[in-house]
Design a protein around this nucleic acid. Structure first.
Lengths: 143, 143
DNA sequence: AATTAAAACTTGACTCACTCAAGAAAAGGG
DNA sequence: CCCTTTTCTTGAGTGAGTCAAGTTTTAATT
């Protein structure tokens, strides 16, 4: 499905900034807003940062992109939506990768008492160390 | 264990700002920094915001408090540490409650391929609606 | 009790992701 | 093509959090 079709299917107006943005998010999963502004401008110079912020919000609430924001990070976006996948974040360098949920079900969704809350989503973030940072002895934490 | 004992046990210097802060976090689980500054100052007027930020960092990295930050929220803190509990966040009003992991194990921790990452923690945030907001028809905002 | 080095605190400026607001441009149904 | 609505541009503003320099406090040592 092309970006234009995706936008129309979501009843969103098709504009060049939005097309460029959706392409950029597709090509750079987990990119932050700053990077996406850069990517959009490489194709469409002169697009305002506000247009990108507005479009990201529109795309997110239309369900075309998903926004993630691990603690200590700025907002990041991806086009992989509608499945139940989660993320691993490297504590050392901040790298993010996708992780499929093994069971295909939302973990712990129904098993615990939830204080009367009605739950509609379980978001899981795994924290650890990426292969590259694992390979390096100790570039940080030196006393 | 008193706050003073907790600080000493963690090899942290015992200062009045830290004591007041640790008490404040104990008394107000999931409070944000702003609220904690207020709580500390109610007991110790004149404490700088920077002292609270510094102390929160020290307490967090010593493992005496845990920092949580759901998307779209500022940082929040709690003293319940060392167990494997998670959080429910209300999409409507932002209320946060604790949720025990039903199995006592970290969900999905070992089940999925993790792209070579070494995982040390799985953080789960449940999104939904709190009892109060569920009861109200569709009136957005605080009454 | 006095000394001292390191850690913590105060003060105030600053950063940066993100938002707000007003007017200009464009999308798309008539 | 025209018109209404939505979106984009421009530029200022917000606020949680950080940085840096200098002073005070802690607690180990004398």
């Amino acid at each position: 499905m092309s970006s234009e079709e995706s936008l129309r299917a979501a009843a969103l107006r098709v504009t060049r900034p939005r097309l460029a943005l959706l392409e950029a998010v597709r090509e750079h999963p987990h990119a932050d807003t700053e990077s996406l502004i850069g990517a959009v401008r490489s194709e469409l110079p002169g697009v305002s940062h506000q247009a990108v912020y507005d479009s990201l919000r529109a795309l997110t609430s239309a369900g075309l992109v998903r926004r993630i924001q691990p603690s200590g990070s700025v907002a990041r976006y991806e086009t992989r939506v509608g499945d139940n996948h989660h993320h691993v974040v490297c504590r050392s360098c901040g790298a993010i990768a996708d992780v499929d949920c093994a069971t295909g079900e939302t973990p712990c969704l129904t098993a615990s008492p939830t204080q009367g809350f009605t739950i509609d989503e379980a978001e899981v973030i795994f924290w650890g160390t990426c292969p590259e940072c694992s390979a390096q002895p100790a570039t940080e934490g030196t006393p």
